[in-house]
Design a protein around this nucleic acid. Sequence first.
DNA 1: CGTCTTTTGGATCGATCACTCCATTCTATC
DNA 2: GATAGAATGGAGTGATCGATCCAAAAGACG
Lengths: 202, 202
Amino acid sequence: MTPKLTRKGQATRERIVAAASTLTFQQGVAGTSTEDVQQAAGVSASQLYHYFSDKRALIRAVIAYQTEAVIAAQQPYLSQLDSLEALKAWRDHLVGLQQKRKFQGGCPLGTLSCELAEIWPEARVDLAHSFGEWEAAIQRGLQAMYDRGELRGDADPERLALGMLAAVQGGLLLNQARRDTAALEAVLDAVLANIMSLTTPS
Amino acid sequence: MTPKLTRKGQATRERIVAAASTLTFQQGVAGTSTEDVQQAAGVSASQLYHYFSDKRALIRAVIAYQTEAVIAAQQPYLSQLDSLEALKAWRDHLVGLQQKRKFQGGCPLGTLSCELAEIWPEARVDLAHSFGEWEAAIQRGLQAMYDRGELRGDADPERLALGMLAAVQGGLLLNQARRDTAALEAVLDAVLANIMSLTTPS
DNA sequence: CGTCTTTTGGATCGATCACTCCATTCTATC
DNA sequence: GATAGAATGGAGTGATCGATCCAAAAGACG
């Protein structure tokens, strides 16, 4: 089923996915033609269709690529969500990243989901799994706090993680539309304050 | 500048905008061809281009149309945000609406923003204003609570409203991807709990 | 009724897009 | 170094889409 790939072939495939990811992040899926990808990756049409059966296969690879990229970028913060300071550091990281990006692009997964969810069921399922992985990473951090007794017994790490992820997505969406981080900060601070109210008095 | 429109012409124009709004909500802007709109509205190509200079002009009309629709749908709840019960009623309304829609489509403005923000600056500005109107409507409700002394002095209605809007957007985005309202409920409840913690003890 | 403007029908055009095809070059493995 | 499979180059194709044009019908208004 899977054709053999030489080292050179793997590199070319990777280059195509990376170029497609950058372009779709900047211009959307519909706004990125296969020719755009070819040019950005420095490959010919036959190369692109040698590694991907069609544009959809390429975009699914982009989804996987961005999922890994997003999780990897968050991991350093999420892996040691052991205190409220760590939560705030994560918050500041997100806000700072958006400022560095000049408030452009929003969340790679969020924009993909918005564009594809209703018109391509398989992509929607892929992205739901991506969000699931991200949520799980947040949840592990909160669960660690819970297990250490830093969160009250009636706190629900799973539900808090899901709400946190939703807050990030909504904040980034408005960040993109408004070209400032006020909404992102407001919603993250609201959610963080809620978590803070669920900590055990020390 | 604006050509004269007879009553019949106004009706035709309205029909085109309504059809385009429905289609773009279901399939996105890029996924909706002018021919799709023509067929759904029952008009010919010359009619569409008689009332709109190009597809962009039509989409800007769609943005205005959806903005009014969204605000109008929220208004009954937002206009009397005079208690925590009213906030919860609004929350339940949003959740119930998504269930009725089978979790499809998300927020009309949110999806438009995701798709257009980076590739069409004017649309981004339009949508930022749309979000601004929506936020203002929420803020008026919270301000009323504040003025009545139901919110503590250090509560910031403007910031709370912005965070609330972001929570709605993020919740709806994940609602669309996951096909359930768990994320929407989680983030709204977190934000509501935060507001509740800012109420004055009665 | 007459006439001027608005509205409508429908064919059509040029550009763009996803995708294909065939020939050629490279590379792994023995 | 021989050979089979993988990788590449580049022209080309059919379909779709946004947009245009000209002429005809409908409506407003004296």
